[in-house]
Design a protein around this nucleic acid. Sequence first.
DNA 1: TTGTCGGGTCCAACTGTATT
DNA 2: AATACAGTTGGACCCGACAA
Length: 263
Amino acid sequence: HDMEKKRDVLPYEIDGTVFKVNATAQRNVLGIRSRSPRWAIAGKFKAQQVTSVVVDIIPSVGRTGAITPVAKLDPVNVGGVVVTNATLHNQDEINRKDIRIGDHVLIQRAGDVIPEIVKVIVSKRPKSTSRYQLPIECPSCEHEVFRPEGEAVARCQNLSCPAQMKGRIEHFASKAAMDMDGFGGKLVDQLVEENLIRTVDDLFKLTFNDLIELDRIAEKSAQNILSATQDAKQTTFARFIYALGIRNVGFHLSKVLQQEFSS
DNA sequence: TTGTCGGGTCCAACTGTATT
DNA sequence: AATACAGTTGGACCCGACAA
């Protein structure tokens, strides 16, 4: 609260204050969690809130088949950035907040970063709206969507679903996994669309001639991509396990597994 | 030569689930 | 009840490479 009073007087922008344990000896005792130290915590100021309109709700399919609804918003400036999307997480969350297409909504950037729909402004709800329901078919492959009893996340169960194949390949090549430079969304899209890749092992069968045919890929890019696949062969057990993308086997568990197997 | 595109990286939240 | 982790999400900015 003290800092919040000083906020306007400071010669620089702040979004809060970090409180830290001062003594390094105590820091060492406290240690760190997987993503942050236990000896420091951020206190953030209240986020700025603005209103916008939900133009549409688009379900997306992740690498595990999870169907995640995303709200498309009328672009609005929130604290210096233009927000156009906000995740709605799952059906339960949509039901809780009763978010409908066409609704006016209150938006903030949680932690001053991630766009979030705080609530619907019900008084501004247009007539003839209806509650939103996630589709019963996968938006990528039209396969049936399955939501297990008692679980929040609905999933596409088709392993050949293009959206899932793309997701698995991007994950496999990502920095924390096999660390193959150059495999971004657009490239992987093309590779799957052109049937050059279906599973991750196909990455290692790519040839210069395959790549040079693709949009925005010339000699230099093709070479870089090929050497990225070669470099990736020198890796660790943990990275490889993580790269396989087994459900509930994340970055940390993979490291633990490596230690277990090596001892 | 230059504008544009895409990849990489950083910032960091929330929900769900399992474990302690 | 608290805590940790997995998995998913959004935007800005920088830079290398492509294409006109």
